Amino acid sequence: DRIFMTRTEALEFLLKAHQTAVDKIGHPSHKQTPADHAAIEALDRLLLDVRARRVDQFQINASAAQIIVTD
């Protein structure tokens, strides 16, 4: 599946995904793992790359739809 978004929409989408990941590892019942921190770092890099126009398409994980940034 493909989803087309403007750059602004894609950045909002990534910010929400980032916040969800941060909230998940901050929850008291969740045991933090290196994979959790790696996922947040990957989202940080992706946010910067989309914002800087170095990336025009991405996929958060293998089961997610491919996001295509349109400007």
Rank of each mutant, 00 (worst) to 15 (best):
D1N: 01
D1I: 01
D1V: 02
D1G: 02
R2A: 12
R2G: 05
R2F: 12
R2K: 15
I3T: 04
I3V: 09
I3A: 03
F4D: 02
F4Y: 15
F4M: 08
M5R: 01
M5P: 00
T6K: 04
T6P: 03
T6R: 03
T6Q: 03
T6A: 03
R7K: 03
R7T: 08
T8P: 08
T8A: 14
T8H: 14
T8Y: 10
E9L: 04
E9M: 06
A10D: 00
A10Q: 00
A10F: 02
A10R: 00
L11T: 03
L11P: 00
L11F: 04
L11W: 04
E12Q: 09
E12H: 08
E12F: 05
E12M: 06
E12K: 08
F13V: 08
F13N: 02
F13M: 10
L14R: 00
L14A: 00
L15C: 08
L15V: 13
L15P: 00
L15G: 09
L15Q: 14
K16S: 09
K16Y: 07
A17D: 01
H18S: 04
H18W: 15
H18G: 03
H18R: 15
H18A: 06
H18L: 15
Q19I: 07
Q19D: 05
Q19S: 08
Q19H: 06
Q19A: 13
T20D: 14
T20S: 14
A21G: 02
V22S: 08
V22W: 04
D23S: 12
K24M: 10
K24D: 05
G26S: 14
G26E: 10
G26Y: 13
H27V: 09
H27D: 14
H27N: 13
H27E: 11
P28G: 10
P28C: 06
S29T: 12
S29E: 13
S29R: 08
S29M: 09
H30P: 05
H30F: 09
H30W: 11
K31N: 13
K31E: 12
K31G: 11
Q32R: 12
Q32L: 14
Q32A: 14
Q32Y: 09
P34V: 10
P34D: 11
P34T: 10
A35Q: 12
A35H: 08
D36I: 08
D36C: 04
D36N: 06
D36A: 09
H37S: 09
H37N: 11
H37M: 13
A38K: 09
A38T: 07
A38E: 10
A39V: 13
A39D: 11
I40D: 01
I40Q: 03
I40F: 04
I40T: 03
E41S: 10
E41T: 09
E41V: 12
E41Q: 12
E41D: 11
A42I: 14
A42N: 09
A42Y: 15
L43H: 00
L43Y: 03
L43S: 01
D44N: 15
D44F: 14
R45M: 08
R45S: 05
R45D: 04
L46Q: 01
L46R: 00
L47V: 06
L47C: 04
L47R: 07
L48N: 15
L48G: 13
L48R: 15
D49W: 03
D49P: 00
D49S: 03
V50M: 03
V50T: 02
R51G: 11
R51T: 09
A52V: 05
R53Y: 07
R53H: 14
R53Q: 10
R53V: 04
R53K: 13
R54H: 07
R54I: 12
V55Q: 04
V55G: 01
D56P: 03
D56I: 14
D56K: 12
D56V: 11
D56T: 14
Q57Y: 11
Q57W: 09
Q57V: 13
F58H: 00
F58K: 00
Q59D: 03
Q59N: 05
I60F: 04
N61V: 07
A62H: 12
S63T: 12
S63A: 11
S63G: 11
S63E: 13
A64G: 15
A64W: 07
A64M: 13
A65L: 12
A65D: 06
Q66A: 10
I67F: 04
I67W: 01
I67R: 01
I68R: 03
I68G: 01
V69F: 03
V69S: 01
D71F: 03
D71M: 04
